[in-house]
């Protein structure tokens, strides 16, 4: 079934030689004449396949190797070992050929000409991908419908809000109908409403154009709302590769219970219950539902004395943080 795999990564590794410098003037001199190197494995024997049309979240803490991996997949960096095949092309060997099949949005790095209107920018990017004028016009229309650019398509980019700019960045990177879109932190620095808006658009794009989406983000909301599949990496290795559903099911076996009582209750840690906070009449508990049911816990509390109660899922953020921590050990 390899034909439906749009990205195939096999034992991909990237090591960097980092010059180590000792402190002070003497150290500087030493590093010139007798440099010492430290080997850092940024990506370490990473294997992964992505199917056509998937929306995949690629997440990990800073320095985990996310951007190094993306750079290898887009042809910016060549791997030290192993290989990647993206849209049937080896990025390290045919960078330009690959460029026609992929789109990239690097959240913090603008690609647009800020003094021009989005329309002029699209024309420019169209020319970069050898599109004919009529093809560009047709495509701009399509993108306009999907990404709702109408109201500002003729306003210079420098006068646009951050959210509008990102929409234009995404549109510009889609001008040549790429098969895969790499999004690196697309919603960074945006307010919640705009974030939501961008997420809806990304989803729609995936549906309407069938574009495969490879997304990195620190924002749990992005991942939760957009992606069916999550890959977590740490120290250059995949530590978890699962569906969003499984991730939630397996790791969401914890509930948080917050209660306010009429009088003080004495409750001790026992199997399945962890007391997070115990301050006068307020109590915060974390329950492992595989060991203790919520109902049992409430019974323990004496229901007559409860003034207020709130039961919630553990936030995805904590789950991911726990996975990072676990992989470190």
């Amino acid at each position: 079934m390899s034909s439906v795999n749009i990205i195939e990564i096999k034992h991909l590794s990237k090591t960097f030689k980092i010059k180590e410098k000792e402190k002070g003037f003497k150290g500087s001199l030493k590093s010139i004449f007798k440099p010492k190197y430290k080997i850092k494995k940024a990506v370490n024997n990473l294997s992964l396949t992505v199917e056509k049309g998937e929306v995949i979240a690629f997440i990990g803490p800073n320095g985990a190797g996310k951007s190094t991996t993306i750079k290898m997949l887009t042809g910016i960096l060549t791997p030290t070992k192993g290989e990647a095949i993206v849209a049937g092309i080896n990025p390290a060997k045919q960078r330009k050929k690959l460029a026609y099949k992929i789109g990239t949005v690097f959240g913090q790095k603008e690609q647009l000409w800020t003094h021009l209107t989005p329309y002029d920018n699209f024309k420019f990017f169209g020319a970069i991908y050898d599109l004919k004028d009529y093809e560009i016009e047709r495509r701009i229309k399509e993108l306009n419908d999907t990404l709702e650019l109408d109201e500002f398509i003729n306003t210079p980019v420098r006068n646009l809000s951050l959210g509008q700019r990102i929409r234009c960045e995404i549109a510009a990177s889609l001008i040549h109908k790429p098969e895969i879109l790499f999004l690196d932190e697309p919603t960074i620095g945006l307010d919640p409403v705009v974030k939501e808006n961008i997420r809806v658009l990304i989803k729609r794009m995936n549906k309407e154009f069938g574009t495969t989406i490879f997304l990195t983000s620190h924002d749990v909301g992005d991942i939760e709302k957009l992606c069916k599949r999550v890959v977590i990496i740490n120290d250059g290795k995949v530590v978890l590769d699962d569906t969003m559903q499984n991730l939630k099911y397996n790791y969401l076996n914890r509930k948080i219970i917050e209660v306010k009582m009429k009088e003080k209750v004495n409750l001790d840690d026992e199997d399945g219950i962890t007391i997070l906070k115990d301050k006068e009449y307020n109590l915060k508990l974390s329950i492992d539902v595989s060991k203790k049911s919520v109902a049992d816990v409430i019974k323990l509390l004496n229901t007559d004395k409860i003034i207020d109660i709130n039961i919630s899922n553990e936030p995805l953020e904590n789950i991911i943080a726990n996975i990072y921590k676990g992989s470190k050990k």
């Binding site: 750079k71 887009t74 042809g75 910016i76 960078r95 330009k96 050929k97 460029a99 026609y100 992929i102 990239t104 690097f106 790095k109 690609q111 970069i128 991908y129 050898d130």
Partner: peptide, 12 residues
């Protein structure tokens, strides 16, 4: 600044 990367992903 890494702006070079933006040009590396273009087919020109």
């Amino acid at each position: 600044s890494g702006k070079l990367d933006a040009y590396l992903v273009q087919p020109k």
